[in-house]
């Protein structure tokens, strides 16, 4: 097995040029020489409106991969009540926008997560929860868990901690909403454009690859 990983630009560090649907908006302040503040174009305004609706109605796929899923229960119930932010749980990937990868991800679950993620309609986002998704966390030397999620799926927001408290999750969701409103959360676009690279990495870790090339 080849251990050399071609390193692309990760989605968090800034996607490749030309991949964004429109220029980042929201600051209203341009520092360029000949740039003047001007009214957004029709397409940009429509994109802003769409993003506002998307950000305020996040439907989360109810699928817990690891121990972090236990933090979603207090988030949904009376204490932290995520429904007040418009976040609801949907039990089917066809109707969800957000996939929370909660904690460690076994290779077996990674296959199911890829399948669910590709079945979700675009635009879609991934919230990676816990340090296991970032660098392996306390399971970094486990024989069956992956160490870096962003090699296999595009991550829009990381929430670190082991475990992050529900407050951290709320903060992460607010960050996700802010990024969606600004048009920065386009990991799904990154995934579509660099599909070959993602598929190559996925096939390296999933030794018995029996998925179709893309799960519609």
């Amino acid at each position: 097995m080849d251990d050399k990983i071609v390193k692309p630009e990760p989605p968090l560090g800034g996607p490749p040029q030309g991949s964004r649907p429109h220029a980042p908006v929201g600051d209203g302040c341009f520092l360029g020489e000949e740039m003047k503040p001007q009214a957004p174009s029709y397409k940009e305004a429509l994109a802003r409106i769409k993003n506002w609706f998307r950000a305020n109605s996040l439907w989360v796929m109810a699928y817990g991969t690891g121990c972090g899923a236990i933090e979603l229960r207090p988030l949904a119930t009376a204490r932290f009540d995520m429904e007040r932010l418009g976040i609801a749980m949907r039990p089917t990937p066809r109707q969800s926008n957000v996939l929370i990868v909660s904690g460690y991800l076994a290779v077996k679950s990674l296959k199911r997560v890829i399948r669910s993620y590709e079945q979700m309609p675009s635009p879609k986002w991934i919230v990676a929860l816990g340090s296991c998704t970032i660098n392996g966390g306390m399971y970094w030397d486990s024989y069956n868990t992956i160490n870096r999620l962003d090699l296999y799926l595009p991550v829009d927001v990381y929430i670190n901690g082991c475990m992050p408290r529900p407050e951290a999750l709320v903060a992460g969701f607010q960050e996700l909403m802010r990024r969606i409103k600004k048009g920065e959360a386009d990991g799904w676009r990154h995934y579509m454009e660099n599909l070959d690279w993602y598929k190559e990495n996925q096939k390296k870790i999933i030794t018995d690859w029996d998925l179709p090339e893309y799960n519609w």
Partner: peptide
């Protein structure tokens, strides 16, 4: 009733427009 704050009253409108703005290829 469940002791939560709850979503805003206009939340179904947000959901409705959000699903309209989604893409499908199935």
């Amino acid at each position: 009733i469940q002791g939560r704050i709850g979503p805003p009253v206009y939340q179904p409108y947000l959901d409705l427009f959000k699903v309209i703005f989604q893409r499908t290829a199935t």
